[in-house]
Design a protein around this nucleic acid. Structure first.
Lengths: 343, 343
DNA sequence: ATGAAAGCGCTAACAG
DNA sequence: CTGTTAGCGCTTTCAT
């Protein structure tokens, strides 16, 4: 059941005018007399008239809403990004429709289809961990849907992108370890197919190289679902902890991995940083309260959301097809705390 | 710029049929011959036809989308609730439009108007801390908009509600303190006008009463913005810490207050639980990693979101006006950890 | 079994 | 300055 809304027709009827006159009066057209406008406005006010945006959308072929696809809403990083997205969208009069892929390729495809079929004006997306085939995105993009990628991006899609300097973040973290005197630095990373994983591991590798520290392959462990499945983290940590040359420090490349790693170490009664030091990508507000306070690489998540939305709306509202796409790279912050201090 | 979608008209033209026939064939009407159906379906497939939901919405006066208003998306509790909402909405073919009031009454009003004007089929809302006047919600509800309240609810609005047993949660927490031997138990609460504050403080008071523990008014401090503004928390804590009879334990009634309280205590170099024990409402996934591990009252946030959505869709899809409203009360969980153990 | 036409709410080209 | 008309994409009588 739904309430009957007041339409332009009702006003026209009440005033003995035509709908077009009312429409024009409402839109403050110059070809309407001041008195008529006055009359219409008053009547609209009295009847509590609200324009029907759906009718408008049908005409204008735009819905003033944007879609967002993330792997998980209840994740500090992504919820902060969505916060940023919402704030800009709100300012510009757009609605934000959120959906989550739950790291499933299949769901990402469906989500995107769903959003497209619901006539969102554009989409902001961070790829799911399972996504290797990009045809669903390319197809949508080719059909003219404005798309902005953030965080987990892909070079094959030619559009605006927003990321942080993942390489730098990981490089600095690794270097911090090295300067602290850690020798055997491991990495607990997400799926190898994810852009962020590649970028972060590249930073890690290069920092080691730059300081002439050799690293063995076993020092890099991947969790395909990036910590969504806890057992995955435990298993990966198990591998690291049972190496002959046990690492003395570890870099974790995502929020979930970071907390998963801390949990695992604690459950095993290991001391951070004595048994293993830790620096993790994390946007948790309470990383500093953890025992020990966590050294984190923090992303300007809200700002990423805002930037992505601004770029998207730029595409959406552009009159002519945009050719030049921008890759905006924000700077992550290395917040040094107890978990990465050599004892 | 926007891509041109294939319409029913295109199919009709391609097949030399009328739009009505195509429409009927697509909807598998019995008054269409099998061959025609076949033809239409194939053509639709070939042209990659997608029904335009906006046109449908205009006709059916429903949009298959629901609106959500929370004070802040980037808050563990609310993001978990939204996760739950999204999961059910997804299953039932609805989109979720999120907006945040940022604890502002004004924004809540605008958000709600915006959602209503965008023809959402229903709204799930948790009141902002500033909200005392409910006319915006009542008006919308009176006009027939299905509404479900959760978390911060209000008795004056007669509709479905989903909360946890806040009284019980606070009661149990307080009693836990008492049984541990804490004598001077304070409370750091949100705005007094919030239902959750009232309910939680009632549990706190009653537990004290039941154990014949007197309490002074000064033991209850309110932060109007519930920890959104950190200085507010510091100030409130300051008041507690400078009392002659300094409390030896404190209950915090929301996520933000809990972390704010821990931060304040740590910054002052105070020991938890020795100088002050703590139990807080919190849905953080890493409360157990904090130093000391936080004793928390955890709400089944995702389940709350799911329940709210189920109730909302029940209203949305009901043929006749619903009269009997349900208040679903879920059970919070008291997770006992180091922060509330008497040393 | 199929088509013509009206209508959902709104705008805009075209007439006066 | 205002009204008439057509049309956005789709469904649904009402004819045929």
């Amino acid at each position: 059941m739904k309430f009957e809304a007041v339409t332009i027709k009702d006003i026209a009827k009440a005033l003995g005018l035509s709908t077009s006159t009312v429409s024009r009066a409402l839109r403050d057209s110059h070809e309407i007399s001041a008195e008529t406008k006055q009359l219409v406005l008053e009547c609209a006010e009295k009847l509590n008239y609200r324009p029907n945006p759906i009718a408008l959308s049908l005409k204008e072929k735009r819905s003033r809403s944007i879609g967002v696809v993330v792997c998980e809403i209840a994740n500090t990083f992504f919820s902060q990004v969505i916060n940023g997205i919402e704030s800009i969208a709100y300012d510009r009069g757009y609605n934000v429709i959120v959906s989550q892929s739950r790291e499933s390729y299949e769901r990402e495809v469906i989500d995107l289809q769903f959003l497209a079929s619901r006539s969102v004006d554009g989409v902001i997306i961070s790829l799911s961990t399972e996504t290797t085939d990009l045809t669903h995105i390319k197809a949508l993009h080719a059909r003219g849907m404005p798309i902005v990628l953030f965080d987990r991006i892909h070079d094959d899609i030619d559009t605006h992108k927003v990321i942080v300097d993942n390489y730098r973040g990981a490089y600095d973290a690794t270097e911090h370890f090295i300067k602290q005197g850690f020798k055997r630095i491991a990495a607990l990373a997400g799926s190898e197919f994810l852009s962020i994983t590649a970028e972060r591991l590249a930073g890690y590798h290069d920092a080691l190289k730059a300081h002439n520290i050799s690293y063995s392959k076993e020092y890099v462990q991947h969790c395909f679902y990036g910590g969504m499945v806890f057992s995955e983290v435990e298993e990966a940590m198990n591998k690291l902890l049972t190496l002959k040359q046990k690492p003395d420090a570890v870099i974790t490349t995502s929020d979930k991995l970071t907390t998963g790693c801390v949990k695992t170490l604690k459950r095993r009664g290991l001391d951070i940083p004595k048994d293993m030091a830790l620096i993790g990508f994390s946007n948790s507000d309470i990383a500093e309260l953890v025992d020990p306070p966590l050294t984190v690489i923090r992303q300007p998540a809200e700002e990423m959301g805002r930037a992505a939305t601004e770029l998207l709306l730029q595409l959406v509202e552009s009159k002519r097809p945009v050719k030049d796409f921008e890759k905006r790279v924000l700077t992550p912050e290395l917040l040094i705390r107890g978990s990465a201090i050599k004892s």
